[in-house]
Design a protein around this nucleic acid. Structure first.
Lengths: 231, 231
DNA sequence: CGTATCGTTGAAATATATCAATCGCAGTGG
DNA sequence: CCACTGCGATTGATATATTTCAACGATACG
């Protein structure tokens, strides 16, 4: 059997429950089922820590409902959020022994938790699952690289636009984006201050690019304009 | 055989030629030899493209001598350098079909080039090598995450200090750091302008933290002071 | 030795941060 | 039901770090 290296064609798509995934010898359906078979459900309250930077990475997590932030802090408290994880997303998978960042529930969350050793036990015998673990890490790297471009070279407006466009891409059908996270979370993700994020939202609103229904509900009025601002 | 998930204990350490690595059934010695057995030597001139973003990722590369930058550009030319790769470093390994960024030689370079399919052929049968490929991607992710913190939350001075400290860590014995890259490269890596980088170097010099012997040779006078600036 | 390129320095402009006040909403208790 | 409270978001005024624009200096190269 050959190694499948196209992420999209992977037997174990660890990221999303894709009904179209081919059946596997190890499990009934796709990655999601595999994971579910192995994992246990847990729930976390708002701002509750799921794991901390430096802790042993003995578990792998998937968001069932709610949202999670992964982040690192400098000694003086400056925080950089590495990523937001929404329903269906996997997080906390490490190749090394320890977590490289901390994870917290943004609001109340249902999380599927799976022993890493269980996955690893299978991966030792199955090149396919090993491949899927790799693809998951590669996906995170890809997101980190896009984030690098954003933080290093984009203006505040471009950052916010990129952020909103990425969220909109996750739920292409929906008329409205629901922001699970606070302005502070967004600011710490985009490398800005809360005030700049707020000002940029109102700017985009007065330019007719978005509409805000309360600060957590964003409607994208012009997809084209938003894409142009994205750079 | 179990999967070894501690990066340091990996049989195939793809990143460095470590003579201490245990022998493998697939090859004589360690990751470096394995790669060398499979690869072909090539050389690239200054600013020559090694591969471009979006091109098929059919090869994996290792720096023999010289230095390489990997980067992405926005449509208007703004560039973000993702990483610098020095002697011994692996780069261009992708889980997906295409390269996620471009790579160029910073100066004249000797590069070891290996067909990805060769590695993948082995990885399909060996959980160990699969593991090593994963560890390599995880290492890149780890570096990207540190870079994220730098770009999102550190001041210009902290960025430069972090950059120099990281370089110094790579060659702990040497009294002097050799900068293979231009100020523009450093600026595009740190998310700053060339002028700010230059000013920060002179600032660090007048603070007695570093000494410059020509703009490409940096001596670290106070490791402690530099570490403190790193945050 | 001239020329091109890269790096440094200075002065001015600007995007974003900081500081501070107000607003608005959700939850709470009288 | 309505005022009270608290927290997050918005807005304004000001400060500042970094960028931009421009000139000059240094270094490498033919």
């Amino acid at each position: 059997m050959t190694v499948q290296y196209a992420r999209s064609a992977n037997v174990y798509d660890l990221r999303q429950a894709s009904p179209a995934a081919p059946p596997s010898m190890l499990h009934t359906d796709d990655g999601f089922d595999l994971f579910q078979g192995l994992g246990a459900r847990m729930s976390f309250d708002r701002d509750e820590e799921i794991f901390g930077e430096g802790e042993p990475a003995d578990f792998v997590y998937r968001v069932i409902s709610g949202a999670v932030r992964t982040y690192r802090v400098l000694s003086d408290g400056r925080r950089q959020i590495g990523d937001f994880h929404l329903a269906g997303d996997l997080f906390g998978l490490e190749a090394g022994r320890e977590h490289m960042f901390s994870a917290e529930a943004i609001g109340h969350c249902e999380i599927l938790v799976c022993r890493r050793s269980a996955l690893f036990g299978i991966a030792a015998r199955s090149a396919e699952l090993g491949q899927a673990l790799w693809a998951q890490t590669a996906l995170e790297l890809e997101r980190a690289q896009a984030h690098l471009m954003l933080l290093g070279r984009k203006s505040a407006c471009e950052r916010v636009a990129t952020f909103l466009a990425a969220l909109a891409d996750r739920c292409p059908g929906d008329r409205e984006i629901v922001l699970h996270m606070s302005r502070q979370d967004i600011a710490d993700y985009l490398g800005l201050t809360i005030e700049t994020v707020s000002r940029t939202f109102t700017q985009l609103q007065s330019d007719g690019v978005i509409a805000l229904n309360g600060c957590r509900h964003v409607q994208i009025l012009s997809r084209g304009a938003l894409a142009r601002l994205t750079q």
